[in-house]
Measured scan of single mutants.
Amino acid sequence: GATAVSEWTERKTADGKTYYYNNRTLESTWEKPQELK
Results as ranks from 00 to 15, higher is better:
32 K>T: 09
19 Y>W: 05
9 T>I: 14
19 Y>E: 06
4 A>P: 14
5 V>N: 13
11 R>T: 06
5 V>I: 13
22 N>G: 00
18 T>I: 15
9 T>G: 06
32 K>M: 13
13 T>S: 08
31 E>P: 03
18 T>P: 05
10 E>T: 05
37 K>Q: 15
30 W>Q: 05
2 A>T: 14
13 T>N: 08
26 L>P: 00
35 E>T: 05
17 K>V: 08
16 G>V: 00
28 S>F: 12
35 E>G: 08
3 T>I: 13
7 E>K: 02
11 R>W: 06
15 D>M: 05
30 W>K: 04
24 R>S: 08
10 E>K: 04
29 T>V: 14
16 G>N: 05
36 L>D: 08
5 V>H: 13
16 G>Y: 02
37 K>G: 15
37 K>R: 11
17 K>E: 10
37 K>F: 14
4 A>Y: 04
37 K>N: 14
10 E>R: 03
9 T>M: 10
23 N>T: 15
29 T>E: 04
35 E>S: 10
3 T>Q: 13
15 D>R: 04
29 T>M: 08
25 T>S: 04
7 E>M: 04
9 T>H: 10
37 K>T: 14
23 N>S: 15
8 W>S: 00
13 T>I: 01
8 W>N: 01
32 K>A: 07
37 K>P: 10
25 T>W: 01
1 G>M: 12
26 L>R: 14
25 T>K: 01
25 T>F: 02
23 N>R: 10
13 T>D: 13
24 R>A: 10
35 E>Y: 07
21 Y>P: 01
23 N>A: 10
11 R>N: 05
7 E>R: 03
5 V>M: 13
6 S>A: 11
21 Y>T: 06
33 P>K: 01
2 A>Q: 13
26 L>S: 13
34 Q>G: 12
26 L>E: 13
10 E>N: 01
25 T>A: 01
31 E>N: 07
1 G>C: 15
24 R>V: 15
5 V>C: 12
14 A>N: 08
23 N>M: 14
22 N>V: 00
27 E>W: 02
20 Y>M: 00
35 E>I: 05
34 Q>T: 11
14 A>Y: 06
30 W>V: 05
12 K>D: 03
23 N>V: 15
18 T>N: 06
22 N>W: 00
28 S>Q: 11
37 K>I: 14
36 L>K: 06
21 Y>K: 03
9 T>W: 05
28 S>G: 06
8 W>P: 00
29 T>N: 04
33 P>G: 02
32 K>H: 05
11 R>V: 12
27 E>M: 06
26 L>W: 06
14 A>E: 11
14 A>L: 10
12 K>G: 03
29 T>F: 08
34 Q>A: 14
12 K>H: 11
13 T>H: 03
37 K>Y: 14
31 E>R: 06
10 E>G: 00
15 D>W: 06
8 W>L: 01
4 A>E: 12
19 Y>M: 04
4 A>I: 14
2 A>G: 14
36 L>W: 05
11 R>F: 10
9 T>F: 09
17 K>H: 10
7 E>T: 03
2 A>K: 14
26 L>F: 14
10 E>M: 05
34 Q>W: 10
25 T>L: 03
25 T>H: 00
37 K>M: 15
3 T>P: 11
1 G>N: 14
2 A>R: 12
3 T>M: 10
13 T>V: 02
6 S>G: 14
5 V>F: 10
17 K>R: 15
20 Y>L: 00
2 A>D: 13
26 L>K: 15
14 A>M: 09
4 A>K: 11
24 R>P: 01
34 Q>K: 10
20 Y>F: 07
16 G>Q: 03
16 G>H: 04
15 D>V: 04
16 G>A: 02
24 R>W: 09
19 Y>L: 04
10 E>S: 03
30 W>F: 14
37 K>H: 12
16 G>S: 03
